[in-house]
Structures are given as structure tokens and as C-alpha cells.
Design a protein around this nucleic acid. Structure first.
Lengths: 113, 113
DNA sequence: TTCAATAGTTCCGATTTCCTGAACTATTGG
DNA sequence: CCAATAGTTCAGGAAATCGGAACTATTGAA
């Protein structure tokens, strides 16, 4: 299994971030990880909303988020600990991630009503 | 030719906005339209940067931007006047578009250096 | 009115990307 | 060593994207 690739913050592209977060499953995963007080495993997202996600798809989604520079994944025993890279991204693209998270929250709130 | 569809602002989805702007040609077009003092035609973007865009592709790109709710297109004689819907989007997703435009600017500045 | 020119749209086949079941790798506990 | 758990990789079929060619719409001129 090849080691996981994480781009250096200077190589993070806006295009990749927007693409990664333009998928409903990925944005839900990312918002959750960004808001969580501690690292999240992949299988914590075996279902997103009421939709079950096959684990091969889940693995691909995490890869997209990782390679976009949005999260960092580290193996810890049998599982993977995923944390957001928000602080780094905030340095590179100030306000971008908070605005997206807020927009996601607004939409979720509107749907719930 | 079917009339152009513009979503009502309440139907604008974050997912669609991020997807629309996750393409380098589209984000360049959008940033330009958003920053322009007056409406822009489609063929003003017959080339983006140094890359020529076939007009069928250009038409598709404008359709994606339009249906995501990012721009409004109105026929004016033989051409199409495209304007951004930034003020409306600002109401729905405050700060989202400015943050993306700023990130795009940062990246363009870094590439130029 | 007819014709030519311009600006975009639509169609459709080729390429690319995305999705996911099946097989595989890695780690741990018993 | 084995079984169980967590995740990755591979491969094929499905879906999205690209772009040339044909089409539509509008205008101005003859």
C-alpha cells in the first residue's frame, strides 16, 4: 500500500478545494471533521445522512479531500485518524473555509425547516 | 432554442456553486464578470489566458454558471449580456463569493510571481 | 424580402472521470 | 497463526465533459 500523499500547503489549489467540496458526501464529511474536537475515522462516515456509502467510495472520497489539502490522514493502529487542515488553509486562503462551512450550515438549516 | 433557465435565488445550491467554480475556465470567466463594471458577452472569453475555448464549450460553461445561479444572461440583439448575481448570492451565502474571488486573486498573484 | 454575418445553442461521438463490488494490504487481539 | 477490523487498489460499467459540425436567432445591408 503506497504511503498517503498530503500536498504541502503552498501546493494547495483553489480548484482542488472547490472540486472536493462540490460533492454532497465530501462536504458533509469535511464539515464534520472540521467541526469535531478530535480526529475522525473513515468508517465513522459509513453512512452520511441516511445514505450508506460503500467503503471503496468512502476511501476515494477521503483521498480527494486529502489530496486537495483539506484533511490530514494518519494511520493509528488499525484505523485512520482524519483531521482538518483548516488553520493552514486559513493562512493561505483567508476566510474561504469558514465561508463554505457557513454556507453549508445555512443550507442544512433551510432544508431542515 | 429553449429559453435560458435561471434558478430563483432560494434554489441556488452551494454544491452547484462550488462545482461551477471548480473549473479553471469557469472561475476565470466568473471572476471577470463579477469584477466588470458592465455586462460581458460570451465571446469576450473566446480565449481565457492564452488558451482558446471552442464556442460549444464556452456555451456549456456559461450554462453551468447560469444554472448554478452565479450569473444572469440576457439576449441583447445578436449577443448575450452576462452579469453576476453577486448581490443576491451575498444575501443567501454571506461572504462566500468574496472569499472565493479573493482566493482566486491570491493564487493568480502567486503564479505571476 | 432576401442574404450574409455574427453570436450562441444543440447534437452527438470520443474521451475522461466517477462509482462500487471484489480482491487485496495492514494492524491488532486472542 | 488466525480471525476480525479498517482501509486501499483494481477493473468494469455508468455518468459527466469536450469539441466539431450543424442549427437557431438577430441584425444590417442590398
Amino acid at each position: 500500500m503506497r504511503p498517503l500523499f498530503h500536498p504541502s500547503i503552498d501546493d494547495v489549489r483553489l480548484e482542488a478545494i472547490l472540486h472536493a467540496l462540490s460533492d454532497p458526501v465530501r462536504v458533509a464529511i469535511f464539515v464534520d471533521i472540521a467541526g469535531a474536537p478530535c480526529a475522525q475515522t473513515c468508517q465513522a462516515f459509513a453512512s452520511v445522512g441516511d445514505r450508506a456509502i460503500p467503503k471503496s467510495s468512502l476511501s476515494q472520497h477521503f483521498k480527494v479531500l486529502r489530496e486537495a489539502g483539506l484533511i490530514r490522514s494518519e494511520r493509528q493502529g488499525v484505523e485512520m485518524r482524519n483531521t482538518s487542515r483548516c488553520p493552514e488553509i486559513q493562512q493561505r486562503f483567508p476566510g474561504l473555509i469558514p465561508a463554505i462551512i457557513e454556507a453549508h450550515r445555512i443550507e442544512a438549516a433551510a432544508k431542515a425547516a
